[in-house]
Design a protein around this nucleic acid. Structure first.
Length: 229
DNA sequence: TTCATTTGACCTAT
DNA sequence: ATAGGTCAAATGAA
C-alpha cells in the first residue's frame, strides 16, 4: 500500500533507465513541456513562486547562463557532500519574470543525516518500510520544506549558517504528510512537482489529478520508487 | 578565522 | 565548436 497526501498539482513521471544514455525528455501533461536530463538517478522538478526551502542545507557551487534562458541557472549541492558523502544536488532557475516563477530540479537523494526527525526518513531504496512518508509543502505562497517525496525528512531550517539565503524561511506549520490513498489536493496551478526515476524498467506517466480517482494507479506510479508494499 | 558565495576557467558530452 | 555542469581561487560576511 502506498499512501500519499499531496498538495498542488503533482505530476509523476518514471522512465526507463538506459545505461550510458542519460538524456531524456519528460513531457508535462498540462503545462509547458519539461525537459529533464542527465544521470541515471532520480530527478524531480518543482516550480514555485519563490525558491524552495526544502529543509536541507545547500551550498551553491556555480551559476551559469543558459542558452535561450532569460535568467541564469544556479547550481547547489548538499552541504554534507564531503562530510557525509551526500550526493544530492539541485538546480534552481528563475523561469518567468511576471509573475516570478522558479523551477527547482533535484538530482539524487539525500543520504546525509541532517535530520531532526530521523525516524521518518524516507529512503526509497530501503526494503524495510511498508508505507512511505512523503512530505510536501502546503503553505503557498511561502513554501517551506519537504517539497519532494524523495527527500528525507530533515526539519532543520536552512537558515542554519545562512545557507539558501535566497530561499524563503520555513513556515511554522507542519509540512509532513503521510502518503495515503486518501488524496487531498488543492487545484493551484502554481505548485507542481515532476518526479522521475531512472530505476524503472518502463516509461510511465501519471497526472495526480487522475490518481485522485484511481489510487491503484498511484501505486503503479510510485512503484518504480517504492518497491515495497 | 571560518565558511559561503561569486565567477571565470576548465571539463565533458553532444 | 558549443552548451551545460563543475571546480576552485578570490572575495565577502559573520
Amino acid at each position: 500500500m502506498v499512501m500519499l497526501f499531496l498538495s498542488g498539482t503533482v505530476k509523476m513521471i518514471a522512465h526507463t533507465a538506459v545505461i550510458g544514455f542519460d538524456w531524456f525528455n519528460l513531457e508535462s501533461l498540462s503545462e509547458s513541456a519539461i525537459h529533464v536530463c542527465r544521470r541515471t538517478e532520480q530527478t524531480w522538478e518543482k516550480e514555485s513562486e519563490a525558491p524552495i526551502d526544502d529543509g536541507h542545507q545547500w551550498r551553491k557551487y556555480g551559476q551559469k547562463e543558459i542558452l535561450n534562458a532569460k535568467f541564469p541557472r544556479n547550481y547547489y549541492r548538499c552541504t554534507h557532500k564531503f562530510d557525509q558523502g551526500c550526493q544530492a544536488t539541485k538546480q534552481v532557475q528563475r523561469v518567468q519574470e511576471e509573475p516570478i516563477l522558479y523551477k527547482t530540479t533535484y538530482y539524487g537523494l539525500h543520504t546525509c543525516k541532517n535530520l531532526a526527525n530521523p525516524e521518518i526518513i524516507l529512503d526509497p531504496m530501503s526494503p524495510s518500510s511498508s508505507s512511505k512518508f512523503l512530505s510536501f509543502d502546503n503553505s503557498f505562497p511561502t513554501p517551506s520544506k519537504q517539497e519532494c517525496p524523495f527527500l528525507s525528512s530533515s526539519n532543520l531550517p536552512s537558515s542554519v549558517k545562512g545557507e539558501c539565503k535566497e530561499e524563503v524561511p520555513p513556515s511554522t506549520s507542519s509540512n509532513h504528510y503521510l502518503i495515503s490513498s486518501d488524496l487531498t489536493f488543492d487545484s493551484s496551478p502554481r505548485h507542481h512537482v515532476t518526479l522521475s526515476s531512472t530505476l524503472d524498467s518502463e516509461y510511465k506517466s501519471v497526472d495526480i489529478s487522475d490518481v485522485l480517482y484511481d489510487s491503484a494507479q498511484l501505486d503503479d506510479a510510485f512503484e518504480p520508487f517504492l518497491e515495497f508494499r
